[in-house]
Design a protein around this nucleic acid. Sequence first.
DNA 1: CACCGTAGGCTAATTCCATTAGCCAGGGGT
DNA 2: ACCCCTGGCTAATGGAATTAGCCTACGGTG
Lengths: 187, 187
Amino acid sequence: MPRAGLSAGRVVELALDEIDAGDVRAWDALTLAAVAARAGVAVPSLYKHVRGLDALRAAVAVVCIDQLTDTLEQVSPGPGAVRDLAVATRTFAHALPGRYGATQAGWATDPNAVAAHQAAGRTVEVLVTALTASGVPEEHGIDAVRAFRAAVHGFVLLELSGGFGLAEPVDASFDYLVERLSQSLTR
Amino acid sequence: MPRAGLSAGRVVELALDEIDAGDVRAWDALTLAAVAARAGVAVPSLYKHVRGLDALRAAVAVVCIDQLTDTLEQVSPGPGAVRDLAVATRTFAHALPGRYGATQAGWATDPNAVAAHQAAGRTVEVLVTALTASGVPEEHGIDAVRAFRAAVHGFVLLELSGGFGLAEPVDASFDYLVERLSQSLTR
DNA sequence: CACCGTAGGCTAATTCCATTAGCCAGGGGT
DNA sequence: ACCCCTGGCTAATGGAATTAGCCTACGGTG
């Protein structure tokens, strides 16, 4: 039997391919069986590289969170930064819905996902920096980040999971939200 | 073997008990095995009352969505309605996190969940009515509902799933968000 | 170049869940 | 008193995760 040449990193890559091939729900639907199939390997073989499904999830989440953070970090500070950050987030979610799902989902309460928590912490730092550099009062930094994440994440989630049943244009609604959010936060 | 005296409705009730016993994730973790255990019955017996797990989920979701809608319907219109609606939603989510999860989760894209969609439609109607009766310009009714749901749902979700890692008081952040949301929508 | 030990595959077995098929009896209606 | 349907059951199938234990490819060493 020729070796497949796997490695911990390669398994994570394959898992990323897998969730990239699906929609937001791909994250929850991620399965070792699917990853093993992509690797051309039997399922138990994966355990030589990864502790199990939860650990793989955590590793994948870290990659996705970092990628989103990097994207947000590119946004230049200034008056329009709130809008730009929101648009960047939504664009990321549209382009890579599976990865977006990974950035926000239930890993948060998983005890063994310390690295994911840290990665998410960096996201918050980047947002705090970007927002305070763009007119959000210092003393409301955390409140503003929470409001920003809640609003944008809530919108994107509802949008991607089909929660907006109506035919009304979604882009306009997003503009509406972001416009008000931007003005509210920068007062 | 004495009969257990089940019925479609009773099974749904037991499923509700089950998700009430857990946190937000209880909705996703809902299992026929758990419901059967509560009923004191073998798993396949449930199929005499329910088509399967998806159908049970849909039925449970309808109950939860209706309950939330009823709660929102109680809020009296007026200047503080946006805040009251937001607080009512969050209170519901805190009191019954499992049910709250049911009101928002992935049933939205499930094809056989027509009833759940309709129930969600009523929620939107109630919100549109409440918001427009409380100072939100008619022409932005849908936009405002979407913004409201996105912000509140996003906040509650992040809160319940542990997304707010920091020790900063969450209640204050919610006030911050709702205050701004209220002013933005009614301006 | 042969050898050898380990890392990286594999199969087998266990457990848990959903679902389907088909059996059997409780008990209400005639 | 009888019948039959409804609502239980057991058995079997199939997908997933995980663990145990085997076996070999292959890189480093004598």
